[in-house]
Structure formats: C-alpha cells, structure tokens
C-alpha cells in the first residue's frame, strides 16, 4: 500500500499495470529492456519488502540463539572484532536459514502470484486467477472453471518448489559443518 501510494499515486514514478505499460510501449515503438524493468519495479519492490521482514526476523532469531553458544563466547574472549564475529554468526546461521527458505518457498510463490494478480502481470498467478470466475447464467450467476489452467499453473509451481528444495538441500549439505561438506 505504501509503495502504491508513494510511487504510483503521488510520484507517478513507476507504472502499476504491467501489461498495459508493455502494450503501450509496443504500440509506440518504445519497448526496450528498460520498459520491462520499469514495469516490474513496483511489483518486485512490493514482493521484496512484504517478504523481507519475515526473513530478517528469522535470521535475527538464529543469530541471537547462536550468539550465546560457547564458540562465539570464546571468540569474544579472544578479542576478535565484532564484524568478524558477526560474519561467523551469519555463516553458522546460513544452513538453518536455507531450511527455513525451503519450507517457505511455497509462500513466496503464493506471494508472487498475488503480486501478479494485483499488478496485472500475465503469468502463473494470472492463469490461476482466470481459471475460476463468475459469469451471468440466465437471470442469475454461475461460475466458469478452467481446470486445465489451474492444474498447469499448479504443476509449474510444484516444479519450482521441488527444484528449489533440491538446490537448497544440496547447499545445506555443503554448508552444514556436521555433514562434513564445508571446506572440502
């Protein structure tokens, strides 16, 4: 809401409707990579900032827990600079953070789809949104349902999820000191 208000309503800095911006640029022969970047600025900013806090809070919790562990106290006693200790803490927190990211990937995808619907980006979220709708039937209303669109979008969503899970698990094995992968 803050981004919409600031960048679209007040400053008119970024466009709101992705498809409309691209189509307009195409019609006027001004379509370039810059057009796509400008049209994507507001959706990306919104998605990043709406998810950022949960991740920041999670890293903070892991770091706070780890800070009281013996090896960190030893580093403090040795007089290591704060920056170096923080770097070690972040490195230690990374495997746990990757696990968190894997489990939350579906939520990120859902967030992405919502952003697509709000900013009119014709992608997976759009397919999902148009797979179900209300339409006039006689005097009243009924629904239209296109299961093939829904199932296609879901299949792609699940594919992303499993690819992400595999990559994250691989990284986890590499980074977790207990697995012996680190430093190989």
């Amino acid at each position: 809401m803050v981004f919409l208000f600031l960048f679209y309503w007040k400053l008119s800095l970024f466009p709101l409707d992705f498809e409309d911006t691209i189509n307009w640029a195409e019609m006027h022969g001004t379509l370039s990579t810059g057009t796509y970047l400008r049209a994507l600025a507001l959706p990306v900013l919104t998605l990043v900032f709406s998810s950022l806090w949960e991740y920041a809070f999670n890293v903070r919790n892991i770091v706070v827990n780890e800070r009281s562990s013996d090896h960190v106290l030893y580093d403090v006693a040795r007089g290591l600079p704060e920056g170096k200790i923080m770097l070690k803490l972040l490195k230690t927190a990374l495997p746990a953070f990757l696990t968190f990211t894997t489990y939350n990937f579906l939520e990120i995808l859902t967030g992405m789809m919502l952003i697509e619907v709000i900013f009119n980006i014709h992608d997976l979220g759009y397919l999902m949104a148009i797979s179900f709708g209300l339409t006039r039937v006689g005097d009243g209303f009924g629904f239209t349902y296109a299961p093939e669109l829904l199932f296609f979008a879901t299949a792609v969503m699940m594919l992303f999820y499993f690819v992400n899970a595999v990559v994250m698990e691989g990284l986890y094995l590499h980074l977790d000191p207990r697995s012996g992968g680190e430093g190989e």
Partner: peptide, 23 residues
C-alpha cells in the same frame, strides 16, 4: 505442508461450493 494452498482452494470452490442468484 507441501500442498499449494491457493490452487487447492480455487479447485475446491467449484467442487464443494455454489454461486448464489446474487453472485
């Protein structure tokens, strides 16, 4: 934990729900 919630709920509406005369 791995069922995608939104597609599930969208598919769920035509299966179990109905649309009233007033939409």
């Amino acid at each position: 934990t791995i069922i995608p919630l939104i597609p599930f709920m969208i598919a769920f509406i035509p299966l179990t729900g109905s649309v009233s005369y007033r939409a």
